[in-house]
Amino acid sequence: MAHLIGGENLHLEYPTKTVFDAVSLGIDQGDRIGIVGRNGDGKSTLMRLLAGRIDPDGGRVTVRSGTTVGMLDQADTLDPNQTVGHAVVGDVPDHVWASDAKVRDVISGLVSDVDWDTDISELSGGQRRRVALAGLLAQDWDVIFLDEPTNHLDVDGITWLAKHLNNRWSKNSGALAVVTHD
């Protein structure tokens, strides 16, 4: 299995707390990782470090050349002025995304009840979260970081997500790290 992401001797601290000190870890193709810990222990921070969203105070994060990394943050990062359709498939022409079975499955699994032409600003928090998750999963990534992806999903949505993630990559390819309470 190929090594995709590595964290070596990571150190991160805030004025009142050291979050990580001398942490080393790696993510390889085929890895499916659950990150567990108490609230405030740094689970989301670790994912943001490995995804390249923040820099460590010490140590380094390396990503294998050509590796694509996608992340669902806990924070709402959607542009409120775009439509649901644009948030999910971007500028990809309809005939292209509609011919992709994976994209159609993501749309039907997460946002089939949301009007495609609605502005993000008009959606509830739960709808926005599902649109953000759909936008991430509609794309191809070598590594996906999901920070509490089941927030705002009902039982059917959680079941769909688990099945999607189990079938997303062939065995020993892709990598997934997730923080969840489910």
Score class of each variant (00 low, 15 high):
residue 147 D to S: 03
residue 46 L to E: 06
residue 121 S to W: 09
residue 53 R to L: 15
residue 168 R to H: 10
residue 141 W to S: 09
residue 130 R to T: 01
residue 44 S to F: 04
residue 41 D to L: 11
residue 1 M to N: 06
residue 121 S to F: 10
residue 49 L to I: 12
residue 57 D to L: 02
residue 3 H to I: 15
residue 161 L to K: 01
residue 72 L to G: 04
residue 148 E to Y: 10
residue 161 L to W: 03
residue 157 G to Q: 01
residue 117 D to V: 09
residue 115 D to Q: 14
residue 152 H to D: 15
residue 148 E to Q: 12
residue 132 A to E: 10
residue 61 V to A: 09
residue 42 G to A: 06
residue 59 G to K: 01
residue 106 V to D: 00
residue 145 F to Y: 12
residue 52 G to I: 06
residue 81 N to W: 08
residue 29 Q to N: 11
residue 112 S to G: 12
residue 22 A to K: 15
residue 135 G to F: 01
residue 122 E to C: 13
residue 116 W to N: 07
residue 44 S to W: 08
residue 30 G to C: 07
residue 182 D to F: 01
residue 55 D to G: 11
residue 26 G to Y: 04
residue 157 G to Y: 03
residue 99 S to E: 15
residue 179 V to F: 02
residue 160 W to F: 12
residue 45 T to S: 14
residue 18 T to Y: 00
residue 112 S to Y: 07
residue 144 I to E: 10
residue 158 I to C: 14
residue 93 P to W: 01
residue 150 T to V: 05
residue 63 V to I: 15
residue 126 G to E: 07
residue 112 S to T: 09
residue 94 D to F: 10
residue 136 L to D: 05
residue 160 W to N: 12
residue 142 D to I: 06
residue 59 G to L: 00
residue 141 W to L: 06
residue 113 D to P: 07
residue 166 N to A: 15
residue 140 D to F: 03
residue 123 L to G: 09
residue 52 G to C: 04
residue 91 D to T: 10
residue 130 R to N: 02
residue 82 Q to E: 14
residue 162 A to D: 13
residue 66 G to T: 04
residue 170 S to Y: 04
residue 169 W to T: 05
residue 47 M to G: 00
residue 172 N to I: 00
residue 128 R to P: 04
residue 143 V to M: 11
residue 140 D to N: 15
residue 51 A to V: 00
residue 97 W to L: 05
residue 62 T to E: 13
residue 1 M to L: 06
residue 99 S to T: 08
residue 106 V to F: 03
residue 143 V to Y: 12
residue 171 K to G: 10
residue 102 K to D: 08
residue 111 V to T: 14
residue 22 A to T: 13
residue 72 L to Y: 03
residue 67 T to Q: 11
residue 39 N to R: 12
residue 44 S to Y: 06
residue 161 L to H: 01
residue 123 L to Q: 11
residue 23 V to L: 15
residue 102 K to H: 12
residue 174 G to W: 05
residue 9 N to D: 12
residue 61 V to W: 03
residue 112 S to H: 15
residue 99 S to P: 02
residue 76 D to W: 05
residue 124 S to Y: 15
residue 33 I to G: 02
residue 85 G to C: 14
residue 84 V to A: 07
residue 155 V to Q: 10
residue 154 D to W: 12
residue 61 V to P: 06
residue 128 R to H: 05
residue 157 G to L: 03
residue 167 N to K: 14
residue 63 V to M: 10
residue 36 V to M: 13
residue 21 D to P: 00
residue 153 L to Y: 10
residue 130 R to W: 05
residue 67 T to M: 10
residue 77 T to A: 13
residue 13 E to Q: 14
residue 82 Q to N: 09
residue 141 W to H: 15
residue 135 G to D: 02
residue 135 G to E: 00
residue 153 L to M: 09
residue 74 Q to R: 03
residue 95 H to W: 15
residue 105 D to V: 02
